[in-house]
């Protein structure tokens, strides 16, 4: 550790990363270059965007675990693969690793055989960050739990885009960071404490909705919970919904609202309708936007530079807003 601060970037690194080092500083860049990122779950459009961003920025290594074969759909949703890979039998992990490696030779990009579901807990020990692409809720919770059980901090991110709606969940456990300075101030180091996905989702809705208007949790948050519950109860693969599922989604919404003792109208029908219509599809512009935030947040977590998202980021195309919800809310000091 003592040598760490003195290690210089290579001339090549200094030249390629010049413009971004001017944003986050050379120490942040060095910390990034020592980070190891594991990516499991489906490599969708948003994940491909985030991967492009972190590989360009110069993390240490990226390991992809996605054994689904490249298909016409995956080519359409990601921009890093060429059409000749369709039905070639190559896995998404292997194909994306090869393409991403070409983006930046200074990052070690590899693909790991098998499925993330089957990886033993000690597999995770090598990594500083685990990013889970589209995956069922149970799996998200399980892997988040594994990340929390290792001897060192393994940051956990899960993210998905459905149509024009995107969500990122972040668990950095205990995270120390230096915020970016605002004009004429010197920032003090900060610490953020994160709840696990399990804890966040078990928090009851009523207090979230009873907060002051400006702090009230956005309806998008609850809408995503309904979708996730519906897919889980119906044993659907994430994204395997269609317009025909709207009645089922509305019923799930009503049931959840009832058990949470809140009004069902706080989740507008229209939002569920839009999610049902979207099915597994992603709007590329929205994947670019949410994938931009996701990449940025992974880089913040490994560089300890900049205030990170706590703990949900939600984007809606119709509202043109990307907002942050802390669940459970932080207690006012």
């Amino acid at each position: 550790m003592a040598d760490e601060g003195n290690a210089m970037l290579t001339e090549q690194e200094a030249a390629v990363y010049d413009r971004q080092i001017r944003v986050w500083g050379v120490e942040a860049q060095k910390r990034m270059s020592k980070s190891n990122i594991l990516v499991g779950g489906a490599i969708t459009g948003i994940i491909a965007e985030a991967l492009k961003n972190i590989v360009l920025a110069g993390v240490g290594s990226v390991t992809l675990v996605d054994d689904t074969p490249v298909s016409a759909e995956s080519i359409a949703a990601t921009f890093i693969l060429t059409p000749d890979l369709i039905d070639s039998g190559v896995s998404m992990g292997a194909a994306c690793a090869a393409a991403l490696q070409d983006f930046n030779p200074m990052v070690a990009v590899r693909s790991e055989e098998g499925n993330i579901v089957d990886k033993a807990p000690d597999f995770y020990d090598f990594f500083s960050v685990v990013l889970l692409g589209r995956a069922p809720l149970d799996l998200q919770k399980k892997i988040n739990g594994i990340c929390r059980s290792r001897g060192h901090k393994v940051a956990f991110f899960s993210a998905d885009v459905r149509g024009g709606i995107g969500q990122i969940f972040v668990d950095l456990q205990t995270h120390n960071y230096t915020p970016f300075p605002k004009p004429d101030t010197t920032p003090e180091p900060q610490t953020a404490q994160y709840p696990s996905l399990e804890e966040a989702l078990s928090f009851s809705w009523k207090p979230l909705l009873e907060q002051k208007r400006k702090e009230r949790t956005d309806s998008l948050f609850f809408t995503m919970r309904v979708l996730e519950r519906f897919e889980q109860a119906e044993k659907r693969r994430p994204g395997a919904v269609s317009a025909a599922d709207l009645p089922g989604l509305l019923k799930t919404r009503d049931d959840m609202a009832k058990s949470q003792d809140v009004l069902p109208e706080m989740i507008p029908d229209e939002l569920l309708e839009r999610l049902a219509d979207a099915g597994p599809g992603e709007l590329p512009a929205v994947s670019a936007i949410v994938g931009g935030i996701l990449g940025q947040e992974i880089l913040k977590s490994v560089s300890s530079k900049g205030a990170p998202v706590e703990n949900f980021f939600l984007y809606s195309l119709t509202k043109h807003t990307g907002l942050i919800e802390r669940v459970p809310p932080l207690k006012k000091s």
Partner: peptide
């Protein structure tokens, strides 16, 4: 020298495409 990172450019390009659409 203008400070520049990939993520902000990706986000803004997404916004441009939304408006162009």
């Amino acid at each position: 020298i203008v400070h520049a990172i990939a993520t902000t450019n990706a986000i803004v390009a997404g916004m441009i495409v939304i408006e162009a659409t």
